[in-house]
């Protein structure tokens, strides 16, 4: 724990200027993740810039039939919105499967996708972690890997001492749904606004596991747009976890199934970012969604999966589990197939 200054700027522009100009500054939204990290010493900012009241706390209809969600809208408000529940059930379900009622009342639309990994080694400042302390190594490799990634990792047996090694997963449920919905992220930076397609918001570890997203320091999410789904599209979120509630996903699946068969699939709990299953989507394009076809598509998607051994038995089970979960989810969404 380290003392920090607290600021509540008057508007977004000032907030962005303040953070962009200070490498030790961070944004504070709902605080559900940052406050934990302050206590654990995982985050050690000099300045906390509260943006909770600066962005919109409204959900407005867009001309194209989509929705614009202000960054300050809470997870609870978003999940309860009738338009979201009717048009984007995948998102409402994902939100309600995450955290607790208390946390959902606090967590924001802008903050939730930016929550950091729950990797226990990341959260323990006494163990090396490339994400927390670049270049220090990765304790997770060969350790407790049950909650870790099988896709987008640096290889079969990553070198725990290499600076680029990271097998963390992204914990957000909401983000998996937003990736499947091809949401658009409004980002305000010092140089102005830009739009980031949600599936491109999060990164793979690459050569810098400390960076979770493509956002530059000081860039702030101000709103997220949900494009309209084709008429008749069905969607669902299926989360598999170790207990009935209050647990992060072992794996999760966000699926959107339009009438024309252009299935969209995003997977949670399997990678450093919400994982759009592009290969499976491609194989299922125009196909009848039989169990056989879905299973084959997922086999192709998971061909490159790298199970991690671990002191807890490892995470190889996720390959079977995510495949079975996708099959079950699409069976429910397209029962006629």
């Amino acid at each position: 724990m380290k003392p920090f200054a607290y600021a509540r700027p008057a508007d977004v522009a000032e907030a962005v200027r303040t953070v962009a100009g200070d490498p030790g500054a961070v944004f504070l939204g709902g605080g559900t993740n940052l406050v934990d990290h302050l206590k654990l010493g995982v985050a050690r900012p000099d300045l906390v810039v509260d943006v909770r009241r600066l962005t919109a706390r409204t959900i407005v209809d867009l001309d194209d039939g989509g929705l614009r969600i202000g960054a300050a809208v809470t997870n609870a408000e978003l999940a309860a919105d009738r338009r979201v529940r009717e048009r984007y059930p995948v998102l409402a379900q994902a939100l309600l499967s995450g955290a607790t009622g208390q946390l959902r009342n606090q967590a924001t639309t802008g903050g939730n996708p930016l929550q950091r990994t729950r990797c226990a080694y990341f959260q323990d400042v006494t163990t090396p972690c490339n994400k927390r302390e670049p270049g220090s190594g990765c304790t997770a490799v060969g350790g407790s890997t049950r909650n870790h990634a099988i896709l987008g990792t640096p290889g079969a047996l990553p070198d725990p001492t290499a600076a680029e090694t990271c097998i963390a997963t992204h914990p957000s449920d909401m983000a998996v749904a937003l990736a499947a919905l091809d949401a658009l992220v409004h980002v305000q930076g010092p140089a102005g606004e830009r739009l980031v397609p949600f599936p491109e918001l999060h990164r793979l570890p690459g050569d810098d596991p400390s960076r979770d997203t493509v956002l530059a320091h000081g860039e702030l999410i101000t709103a997220i747009d949900l494009p309209p789904l084709p008429a008749g599209a069905r969607s669902a979120y299926r989360k598999v976890r170790d207990r009935a509630s209050y647990a992060f996903a072992l794996v999760s699946v966000a699926a959107v199934v339009p009438r024309d068969g252009e299935v969209r699939l995003a997977l949670g709990g399997v990678a450093h970012r919400p994982w759009r299953a592009r290969r499976a989507e491609e194989l299922l394009r125009g196909a009848v969604l039989t169990e056989h076809a879905v299973r084959a598509a997922m086999e192709a998607e998971l061909a490159a999966a790298q199970p991690q051994p671990g002191v807890d038995g490892g995470n190889g089970f996720k390959i079977t589990l995510v495949q079975r979960t996708v099959v079950a989810t699409l069976r429910d969404l397209a029962p006629e197939a």
Partner: peptide, 21 residues
């Protein structure tokens, strides 16, 4: 979950050490 390489419980909080809720 014991990590014998470092000699400690890895899941040392109630978010990761699951109890029945």
């Amino acid at each position: 979950v014991w990590d014998p390489r470092i000699g400690q419980v890895v899941n040392h909080d109630l978010a990761e050490y699951h109890i029945a809720v």
